[in-house]
Design a protein around this nucleic acid. Structure first.
Lengths: 342, 342
DNA sequence: TTGTAGGCGTTATCAA
DNA sequence: TTGATAACGCCTACAA
């Protein structure tokens, strides 16, 4: 076992001072040609690489970005991570990931942990519990310490920081408009509870679309689901006595549960009922019928968030502090779960 | 903006020495009751937290684990990460994730980057390109520097280190046995090229099962796919002139592509052809028909890998160096894509 | 009971 | 052209 080489060891080995070695390796013209070459050759041969930790301590920056997300077993978040990773890597940054598990406490702990020197800034999407509690002291703390924070997807108005979101309202509106365009008359909404911002916004888009087309809003056609676990039975129960010809679901799971129920009860998708989901998942592409969806472009969101964060990180702090909210547009991907009834 | 508090600042503020503050905060009995209380109260009030970077430098350990995986947009890897994260968090470790994108170069760069002080050890699954090249110098380098490495899933015999794998051979064998048990006579195998270890092992299991049941091995019934992108057409082409009644696929995608093709060509799954996939994905559960699968238990693999790594990390290095290979067992999850033909 | 000094690995400043 | 020194933030053996 051969532990990592340090400047000190090189210096001793070559019988020069540490600072000479340091300068030589950084190509300082202060150092004479021959010594420089000798040192560089030695370092190269023994594969010297400076210690990141020491550099971090010295420079007071770690060149790493912290990502905190509610869960990773969720295709959307995975795509976001992948986008962040890509940009971060290109810019010489590392990515450290923590999962809050949708728990407020875990989110706070993770954030404090990373804030103590491990990362230069944060990219995060809030835990459900955090949004429910409305307690954002950990975010405020971090910001007030001068660490940049970029919120994405599950964001919150009260916090002043950069944000990357998708046009939830517009995306939902487009989806419902599509259902209306193909002739649906009774359109149900499968949503989450309102304190999850996306649930609220997508519901808003749904209502807007109805309004614009002079459809009457029927609260009976709206289902708000609290827990992912109970979604399947809630949806079944909800659809039992409803006579709908269109369904807009705020995520993939809800959409698929709905389709399953419909198919199992003697109706067909899309012939009798058209279904649209809000999602980016693999499932929608491969499901039979494949799902018409509002695509979320997670990768793009991740890239955008990383770019914004790194820009903040590399800007001298004095400059005018401004916060941006970038809206990543959604697109309607038409597949086989919707079909014109006309 | 209020930058982070340091020992130095506390010391100045309270007019004592830095070491007094340090000792007081660590409850050293050396420090007098009153000074200690005063210091602790001050620190608590201003929410002092020691700087991780400084601690890492001093202790020469970072308390973080590096994960390097080929890709993250892949449910199996996601579940592994989630398992690692869980155990790591419980033990006070952070997790830093890098993606190799299945590229050898990226894998090497990431590894070197993390090895320069950023992490204490590695958990990784090799890039396809790496296995193809058979160049493992970066792994050897890291190990020889005394950093523990745990390989999972895509492992390689030449490297001496801890490993966490699943019983690919047995899992495949069980799957094929199941197909035989329900009456399949002509069983096709949809696999990957042999240099991907899992492809090779699962092929082995397939052959073993046939052998044990005195089935003749028909190489024409075996398809080896090189690139994920071309899988769909390769499978279609392969199935065109084959008259099979059972299919074993080494992953979810292959299985689903096969089902699609079969259904589109006038046959039914599982009535005419039974299909089993090797996977853990969400897709298999929700696909119609839902897929019978060999489950990989990614979470368990992640937990296991993390436990082994941390154990190594916290053991004094002198102790007898031994490498373990933990085999996580697979299970056959019977769903609706297989059915007895008898 | 408190403080001083040295070191973890690096770089920057200044002196030789 | 090279080297000594201090500093980043923390901890600890030892001195006062």
């Amino acid at each position: 076992m051969r532990p990592k080489l340090t400047l000190k060891q090189i210096a001793k080995e070559l019988d020069v001072s540490i600072s000479t070695v340091s300068k030589a390796l950084r190509d300082s013209p202060e150092i004479g040609e021959d010594t420089r070459e000798k040192i560089k050759a030695f370092a190269k041969f023994y594969n010297y690489k400076p210690n990141n930790i020491a550099l971090s301590l010295k420079n007071r920056k770690t060149k790493t970005i912290g990502i905190i997300i509610p869960e990773i077993v969720h295709h959307f978040f995975t795509t976001v991570i992948s986008g962040v990773e890509k940009v971060a890597n290109e810019m010489g940054y590392n990515v450290i990931i923590c999962l809050s598990d949708n728990s407020f406490d875990k989110e706070v702990i993770n954030m404090e942990m990373l804030a103590n020197g491990s990362t230069d800034g944060f990219i995060m999407s809030l835990a459900k519990e955090t949004m429910q509690k409305g307690d954002y002291h950990h975010l405020i703390e971090v910001i007030s310490q001068g660490m940049p924070l970029v919120l994405f997807d599950r964001v919150v108005d009260q916090i002043l920081c950069d944000k990357v979101i998708i046009d939830d309202v517009l995306g939902a509106q487009k989806a419902v408009q599509h259902l209306i365009d193909i002739g649906c008359k009774r359109i149900a909404l499968l949503s989450t509870v309102d304190y999850v911002s996306v649930g609220k916004l997508r519901t808003q888009g749904y209502k807007l679309a109805l309004e614009e087309n002079d459809f009457e809003l029927d609260e009976d056609l709206i289902l708000k689901i609290e827990e992912m676990e109970e979604s399947e039975e809630k949806i079944e129960h909800f659809l039992k006595d409803k006579d709908v010809d269109g369904i807009f679901a705020v995520n993939e799971h809800f959409a698929i549960s709905a389709i399953k129920y419909i198919q199992e009860h003697g109706k067909r998708v899309p012939e009798d009922v058209s279904v649209i989901g809000f999602t980016d998942g693999e499932l929608s592409k491969r499901f039979i019928p494949s799902l018409t969806t509002v695509s979320q472009h997670g990768t793009r969101m991740g890239e955008e968030a990383a770019r914004i964060l790194i820009e903040k990180l590399e800007k001298t702090p004095g400059e005018d502090e401004q916060y941006r909210t970038v809206i990543v547009e959604t697109g309607l991907v038409k597949r086989n779960s919707t079909k014109s009834l006309k």
